[in-house]
Design a binder for these strands. Structure first.
Length: 131
RNA sequence: GGAGUCGGACGGGCCACCGCCGCGAAGCGAUUCGGGGAGGAAAGUCCGGGCUCCACAGGGCAGGACGCUGGGUAAUCCCCAGGAAGGGUGACCUUCGGACAGCGCCACAGAAAGCAAACCGCCCUCCCUUGCGGAGGGUAAGGGUGAAACGGUAGGGUAAGAGCCUACCAGAUGCCGCGGUGACGCGGCAUGCUCGGCAUACCCCGUCUGGAGCAAGACCAAAUAGGGAAGGAGGCCGGCCCGGCCAAUCCUUCCGGGUAGGUUGCUUGAGGGUGCGGGCAACCGCACUCCUAGAGGAAUGGUGGCCUCAUGCGACCACGCAUGACAGAACCCGGCUUACAGGCCGGCUCCCGUU
C-alpha cells in the first residue's frame, strides 16, 4: 500500500467554472447525506475534489466541520478515486443535524467509490463499444 | 454557612503519527530545515472612527439621528463622575429636554377622562302633601368606577356644603439670598394658586449630520466579439501613370476600453505588557520592552495514548462506560447587544450560627 496521503491545493477544485461544469455535465450519485457529481476529464492527468455545503445545512461551525471531514476522507482514500476526473460532493440539508464523524463518512462513501472503480476498470479492459 | 448584588479572568492539559495555509533560510530544482496559525464573543451588523473611491462655491430648507449636568476620547447612541425621580430591608438597580406654542388621544368601567359638568346622595322651596311621589334650585362632604376623578388632617362655618375661612402638613408659581463650573441643593418671603397622563401620535426647541463601501480602490492582463488609426489588396473617376474619392469585404501592424484570471490593498496598530507621574474615575503623559493568523470555492484538521474537571448510568470512596457550552477570523480599530456546559477570583449587602 503506497497510498499517497497528501491533498494540496492542486488536488482541489477552486474555480466557479469547474464547479458549474461538474454540476451540469457530471454523473450524479446519491447517498444518505451527500450527492456526488463525477465529471471525467480524460487527459488531464489529475483527479480533483471539491465540496459544497450550503447555508441551509447549518452554521459556520457545522459547515466547516463537514468540509473538513470530507477533505480528510478524500485525503485518506485517494487510491479509490476515479482518475482524470472532477468530483464535487454536496452535503444534503439534513447532513448537519446528525453529528457525523470520519468513520460514518467513510462507511457511507467508500462502497460507492469502490463500485465506481470497478466499473472504470471494466470499461478500460473492453474499450470496444459505444456508437 | 445560606441568600443576594456588582465586577474581573478562564473556556481542559501533555505527547505521538498523518495532513492543511502563510512566513524565513538553503538549493537550478524535486525537496529539506526552522518557526507561526481562531474568539470572548471571531456572532448580530446596532452605533462610532480610521482607510479608499465618488460628489462638493457659499447659505438655507427638508430628511435622519441624538437629548439631565460636567468630563474622557480619533469619535460615539460608548465610558467615568455627579444630579433628580422611581423601586428594593440593603448592597444596588432602572429612567432622563418641552404638555400655559399648536393639534390630538386616554380602551374597559364610570354620571363625568380635561374643563367643565353631577348617577346615587345631601339640603331648600314649591306642587296633588295618599305614601317609598313630582317640579325647580343649591351643593361636591359621602358612595360607586377606573391606571388616573382637582390636595390631606383638624376646627370653624352653613339649610346642606365647599380653601368659603383658620392652623398644621404636602405641593405649585414668582422673587430674593447662600453653596456648586453646572444639572441642582439649602434657606427665606409672597400668592389659597391646589388646573392629570401620553411627546415611542404628530409636533416644538437645541445639537450633530454628503454618499458608498476592501465585492472600496490600484496595477498587470488572455481567448472571443466589437471600436479607432495607418498601410496593402479592392472598388470608382480614367486609355495608362500620377493624383483624388469610397469604405459595405480580406490581410498586416499599432492603439485604447475591458471580461475570465493574476498581483496588490493585507496586517505594526488610536497595539499589548511593566514601571513612574497626573486625575475621585473614565483616561492621559513619559520611559523601557514585546511582535501576536493573514485564507481567498476560502488553511487553522484527523487518528491514537496518558492525565484532569464536571454530569449521568452501572447499588456511585476505589473501577468501568458515555457526554461536554455558545460558537469559526475575511480591511483594521473603539463600543453596544445577544448566545454560552462548567468551574475560578474579588468587593459589598442581608440573614443564621459559633467563639
Amino acid at each position: 500500500m503506497m497510498a499517497q496521503q497528501q491533498l494540496p491545493k492542486e488536488g482541489r477544485i477552486r474555480k466557479h467554472a469547474d464547479y458549474a461544469l461538474c454540476y451540469e455535465q457530471g454523473r450524479r450519485h446519491h447517498t444518505g447525506n451527500f450527492i456526488l457529481f463525477v465529471f471525467p476529464r480524460p487527459g488531464s492527468g489529475k483527479t480533483r475534489v471539491g465540496m459544497a455545503v450550503s447555508r441551509k445545512v447549518g452554521n459556520a461551525v457545522t459547515r466547516n466541520r463537514l468540509k473538513r471531514l470530507l477533505r480528510e476522507f478524500y485525503r485518506l482514500h485517494q487510491a479509490l478515486l476515479p482518475y482524470d476526473s472532477d468530483i464535487v460532493t454536496v452535503a444534503k440539508k439534513h447532513a448537519g443535524q446528525s453529528q457525523l464523524d470520519l468513520a460514518q463518512v467513510s462507511a457511507e462513501l467508500e462502497p460507492l467509490l469502490r463500485r465506481q472503480q470497478r466499473r472504470q476498470r471494466e470499461q478500460q479492459e473492453a474499450p470496444t463499444c459505444r456508437p
